[in-house]
Amino acid sequence: MNGKLVISSSPHIRTIESVQSVMIDVLAALFPVALIAVLLFGYQALLTMVIAVISAMLAEAIWMRKLDIFGDGSAAVTGLLLAMTLPPAPPWWLVVVGSFCAIIIGKQVFGGIGNNIFNPALVGRAILVVSWGGHMAGQIWPVPKPFVIFSDFFYDISAVTTATPLAGQEQALNTSLSQLLFGNVAGALGETSALALLVGAGWLFIKGHIDWRIPGGYIGTVFVMGAALGGGFYGNHLLTGLFHVLAGGVLLGALFMATDMVTSPVTNLGKLIFGIGCGVITMLIRLYGSFPEGVTFAILIMNALTPIIDNFTIPRKFGEVKKSA
């Protein structure tokens, strides 16, 4: 033997997973939707994502005064998630400000990774929405142009515009469900293709990083409320419910934002409650509020309630005897 023996408390073997590997898995899971976004919106989409990721990592490195830019990868995840919530061709400074707000106000002031209360990417997005609503959630959105990146690399995607499906009933009726599924629809980068989101989330599910309860509770609630209160366009209440699930940011939110480990409950029951709460608030804002979309606000509000949910849903221990009166 060379070197001294190591003494530690059991167990003596560890999983090969680390925080960094988890973050890389999340990045990989976002790849399909990122790819679709680039195919639809061209180089501007790619640029937005690159700026967001780099400025997020930079913000973290500056705050922590570290040289290792990638680090545990959490800043890159925040940056990419933020980019997913942005329109295809925002001004570059908007992306940078968003990333810095996300990392600093959303995460680092609370003590960095693991300590933040709110989902950093959504904090960044909320600040942008409130500050520059015109850029972020205006009525006009670039029309996606499939495979534009191959045909015309420097095509300015914001030249032709339309409204998002959530803008009103008319726009909703102009959008088919298959369009929503495959992504040929106006909206933020990550809100385009439902299918790509599901594929990515499937990867996280296989790796055990997300659990069915949050997405299930969220999507289920949106579906039920959409069907019951959505007004029943498409001639069918169920299809209306499906529309509400597929359109806008619900899937991105339910699969990637609400499932953010740090800011969602740790208990199983808590996760379900969290998902349902997100769904209810999202639909309230969509149907009755002045914002067309409520995913960001819904998840932030539920983030705030997470400590309380956790405290009230501590699971019953194995073999706990029900207290008889």
Partner: peptide
């Protein structure tokens, strides 16, 4: 283009 969040209540807190 001002960062309007700072004229909102949220911006005051932050």
């Amino acid at each position: 283009e001002p960062m309007a969040v700072f004229s909102q209540p949220a911006g005051a807190f932050i």
